[in-house]
Amino acid sequence: MPEIWFPNLGIEIAHLDRVAFTVFGRNVYWYGIFIGLAVVLGVLMAMKEAKRTGQSPDMYVDFIIYALIFAIIGARLYYVIFSWDFYSAHPEKIFALREGGLAIYGGIIGGVLTAIVYCKRKGVNFWLLADTIAPCLAFGQMLGRWGNFFNREAFGGFTNGLLAMRLQVSQVRTSDISAEVMQHIVNYGGVDYIQVHPTFLYESLWNLCLFLLLIKFRPKKKFDGQVLGLYFLGYALGRVWIEGLRTDQLMFGPFAVSQLLSGGLIICAAVFLIRKGKQEKAKKESES
């Protein structure tokens, strides 16, 4: 029986292992490989853009070392804080990173704070650095979501749409399966499957489009910080929609935390872009 199945596309994947290979008895997971590949390719793209814009390419190698450390800390803190009911009862699990539990918004917050401190200490233009990195973030998120595919996670509720994905119930965390999804279990050849929205795929495709848009727009930007603003606006718009489909959200009361944060981010990014755009326009008019 296939382990992963897209019935309406006629695609069946017989076997998909979470572990890519083993080194000295330690498993190396596909999730980690995708994240590592995203970081390397993102740095290379940032270095190329830095060279084009007269910045120091080596600075981005230096910056990413700090950014990675604090992005991981931020991603873990975010996840633990909004899953405190579990971690307060199992404090020994807080540092068990190999068991999963990193939230992308926490990583972004950690990375942005690191960039602010780094730029202040190095005397670097924060907005220029941010515009250089923003498309790389979209690219990295596009690639990183495929780690969720290998892990059989970050999926949504039941659907019978074109991209509907079936997963073997035995290979999915029970806590990720909603009651609605359980009502639509499909038995095929004696194996139980859930049929869900592949939200990892939706977000990956959304981030790919965002990446291409930012790359196309970046040389035409009117002011430093515009690319970053567009990244936050575009990413948050997609996340508001996609997060509403997922069944494994971090919750704050009756609300999905990522949807609340995305909504606030949309407003902040839009206000920033409008105000900054008006300021630049007024500045040019006064100089002419």
Rank of each mutant, 00 (worst) to 15 (best):
I33F: 04
D224V: 13
Y118T: 03
L212T: 09
G161E: 11
E180R: 11
S170Y: 06
Y188A: 12
H197P: 07
I64P: 03
K281I: 08
R152V: 06
I81R: 02
Y78F: 15
H90W: 00
G25F: 06
K284W: 07
G101W: 01
A75V: 07
K221D: 08
E49V: 12
L260Q: 05
K221P: 03
D176G: 02
I69Q: 05
F95H: 09
L228P: 01
A103S: 12
H15E: 15
F70N: 09
A115P: 02
G238T: 11
F252M: 14
C119N: 12
V19A: 02
N148W: 03
G42T: 03
Q259T: 14
G140M: 09
Y87C: 08
F155A: 09
E99K: 11
S286P: 02
Y193L: 10
P7K: 02
F272D: 07
L237K: 04
L261Q: 07
R76W: 09
A50E: 08
I266W: 05
R166A: 10
K278T: 10
Q183E: 15
K222L: 14
I94T: 12
Y66H: 10
E287R: 14
L273P: 05
T199F: 07
Y78S: 08
E12F: 12
G10N: 04
I94E: 07
P91Q: 05
V240G: 02
E203I: 00
V172S: 02
W146I: 01
M1W: 04
L213M: 12
D192I: 00
G25I: 00
I33N: 01
L9W: 12
V196I: 07
Y29L: 13
K51I: 03
L265I: 14
S83D: 15
I116Y: 12
P198S: 10
L41M: 12
A96N: 13
K48R: 15
L273C: 07
A179N: 13
W206V: 11
A50Y: 06
S178D: 01
L102V: 07
V271I: 15
Q259E: 15
F158G: 08
D58Y: 09
M45D: 11
I267D: 04
K276L: 05
E287L: 15
Y60M: 03
V196D: 04
H184R: 07
E280K: 13
I194Q: 05
L250Y: 02
G111K: 03
F150D: 10
G147E: 00
E3P: 08
G74T: 03
M47Q: 14
L213A: 14
K281D: 04
V28N: 11
F126L: 15
V23Y: 10
H184D: 03
Q226R: 04
N148S: 08
A75I: 08
S286Y: 10
A75R: 09
P7T: 03
G157Q: 07
S262Y: 01
Y66M: 06
